[in-house]
């Protein structure tokens, strides 16, 4: 039987969790760990060593977010098959054209502050998006030349919608 291996990445750390016949191993070290049944699918309850950890999770295709003991975690969990798939995908992305700046939340574009052809620096304001009656400035994550503007002033945008493409 093939070993069950999961990779859990949180910020800059990665843990390799292996489920084997004789127990759970984390980064090669045995760890007494078992799931405790819960009525709620979104609620994780597990016995790790002598402690029971219980926290609800919020899971989408890309990541798992959760609050544990007052601290927020964002984790990517992959099994071996997904890992292989992702490494193939990201190899293809390297040649992609440009960086996109996306709307960080749903709202209304109050003002696009750049024009096509502008040279911009990292941290520079790109657009003002209003949500909950507060204006939020969306800033460039990196520098470059504005290649395309996908929205106009007054337009409603969804979270993740591309505002501007930078090359």
């Amino acid at each position: 039987m093939k070993k069950d291996i999961y990779y859990v990445r949180m910020k800059d750390r990665e843990f390799k969790v292996a489920f084997e016949k004789d127990g759970v191993f984390i980064d090669g070290v045995p760890l007494p760990a078992e799931l405790v049944p819960t009525a709620h699918k979104a609620f994780v309850k597990a016995r790790i060593h002598d402690q029971i950890l219980a926290f609800p999770i919020d899971q989408n295709d890309e990541e798992v977010r959760f609050l544990f003991s007052g601290r927020e975690y964002i984790a990517q969990v992959e099994d071996e098959r997904q890992r292989t798939l992702h490494s193939l995908e990201s190899a293809g992305e390297e040649t992609g054209a440009g960086v996109t700046i996306k709307a960080p939340m749903p709202g209304l574009v109050v003002k696009v502050e750049v024009n096509v052809g502008d040279s911009i620096e990292r941290g520079q304001g790109i657009a003002v998006v209003e949500a909950m009656k507060m204006e939020n400035e969306v800033r460039a994550q990196g520098g470059g030349i504005v290649k395309d503007i996908r929205v106009k002033d007054g337009q409603a945008v969804e979270k993740g919608e591309v505002l501007v493409v930078i090359e």
């Binding site: 069950d4 999961y6 859990v8 949180m10 750390r13 843990f15 969790v17 489920f19 759970v24 984390i26 760890l31 760990a33 078992e34 799931l35 699918k41 979104a42 994780v44 597990a46 790790i48 060593h49 402690q51 950890l53 926290f55 999770i57 919020d58 899971q59 989408n60 295709d61 798992v64 959760f66 544990f68 003991s69 975690y73 984790a75 969990v77 099994d79 997904q82």
Partner: peptide
């Protein structure tokens, strides 16, 4: 230390539930 425990708990849960999105 906490991250390690949390990672193990998470891997257990994903192994059991799969990676469906609860949203």
């Amino acid at each position: 230390e906490i991250e390690r425990s949390v990672a193990a708990a998470l891997a257990l849960a994903v192994k059991q539930n799969g990676s469906r999105t609860n949203n």
